[in-house]
């Protein structure tokens, strides 16, 4: 099967930022994204767990989207403006998709 190279942007963000990030994705013309809950992890401040957080403010979410390379910088610029000072991660990876017209 023929595959096509695209870029996968993965963000681990604090839950209070979720709406702002997805709004930036929409404004930047991203065709779709997925939001996943983050259950636990370990970072610069030590271990963290979603269990026992008293409100959504303490929760984390993963946001994944796949974009064409031509859009990558524009999307990263607007998203990074929101998350640059926050707890979390921003990663970009090469992925292969089978339906390139969707991205």
């Amino acid at each position: 099967m023929q595959t096509h190279l695209k870029k996968r942007i993965e963000l681990i963000i604090e839950m209070p930022l979720l709406r702002r990030v997805t709004e930036r994705f929409n404004a930047a013309g991203v065709s779709g994204y997925s939001v996943l809950p983050v259950i636990a992890g370990r970072g610069q401040s030590g271990t963290w767990s979603a269990d026992g957080q008293v409100s959504d403010a303490g929760q984390m979410a993963a946001v994944i989207c796949i974009v064409d390379e031509a859009k990558l910088d524009a999307v990263l610029d607007v998203v990074f403006a929101v998350v640059s000072k926050q707890i979390g991660l921003v990663t970009v990876a090469d992925v292969a998709v089978v339906r390139p017209e969707r991205f």
Binding site: P16, L17, S45, V54, S55, A57, G58, I87
Partner: peptide, 26 residues
Amino acid sequence: SYIAVPAALRLALPEANPAIPLTLSL
């Protein structure tokens, strides 16, 4: 507060360490 203010401050004061006020208040 340990519900309304933490959420607001993660947006408006992201440089602050959220664990300190939460540990104290809660």
